[in-house]
Amino acid sequence: MNSFSYTRAQEVDTAVREVTQDKAAKFIAGGTNILDLMKENVERPDRLVDITRLPLQQVESNPEGGLRLGALVSNADTAYHPEVIERYPLLSKTILAGASAQLRNMATDGGNLFQRTRCYYFYDTATPCNKREPGSGCSAINGYNRIHAILGTSEQCIATHPSDMCVALAALDAVVNVKGPEGERQIKFEDFHRLPGNEPQYDNTVKTGEIVTSIDLPAEGFAKNYTYLKLRDRASYAFALVSVAVGLDLDGDTVREARVALGGVAHKPWRKPEAEALLKGQKATKENFRKVADALLQGAKGFGSNTFKIELAHRAIVRALVMATEMKKK
């Protein structure tokens, strides 16, 4: 860990200013990702701006009839918030499938969006990695890539975004509110994370100095028929190999609307509206679910140790859709 200075911001504007002025400065919220990476010398900020005391701690209603999650609400408080449980059980379930109780108490909703890949090589400064050191090469492509992406990869990087929470946010069509040196803006969730392309060093589309102030959940929460299926190498406290968040709006056996987002398979939570549209007005059958899986996984490519994910994801999608469908019967 390098040497850095520390300041605690009391207002959003000062926080933004401090990080804008100093290119090597970073925000720190729960600290669960940035400190981990600083100890590995992967992140080396010269200043940390502590944003945990900013007044962004509320879960409140938003103008669209949905909920607004303050960026500094902890993952645990979000998951156990009565309104989240009631209206967005998918989000609650997804958060609780991630990390550990301790980490969820620390991690913030804003910070969760920014967590970086768990690629072994990214974490290990002794190895080449384009994301960590652009141009140094990608060790994973011809190396050990069990946890790596099968969709949206590039020749530069095959890392995944490791978050569970973000998979639900993607499925729910959340909107991220940010504030920066040039004022406020809203980022649709699908535009928040990016694919690696030729610049794998960038995980998302947030600009220097911008701070996430809150996350808006639209009114529709798919609270009746939903599921989050997370497949991993042990029963808990492990990142997803493949995960599937599903929200269904059903009319009897017929699907009015379907949302399917995948985790663990790409540099961002993976959604494909065309695939979801295949279910619109169709019966909720395994047969139809398989078509969705085919469409979602179109173009999927394995790299050796992760090739199994293609088949696993296919089965997981079908299963998750079945699970979500069957909820109403209970």
């Binding site: 390098n2 850095f4 090597a24 080396r44 535009d191 694919l195 392309g197 610049e199 960038y202 600009k207």
Partner: peptide
């Protein structure tokens, strides 16, 4: 999918020790 250059990668930072805080 949008893909813009957004933040500068962090470069090497100066050598020195951090000040103590109360």
């Amino acid at each position: 999918m949008s893909s813009k250059v957004l933040t500068e990668p962090i470069g090497d930072v100066a050598v020195g020790l951090p000040p103590l805080q109360r």
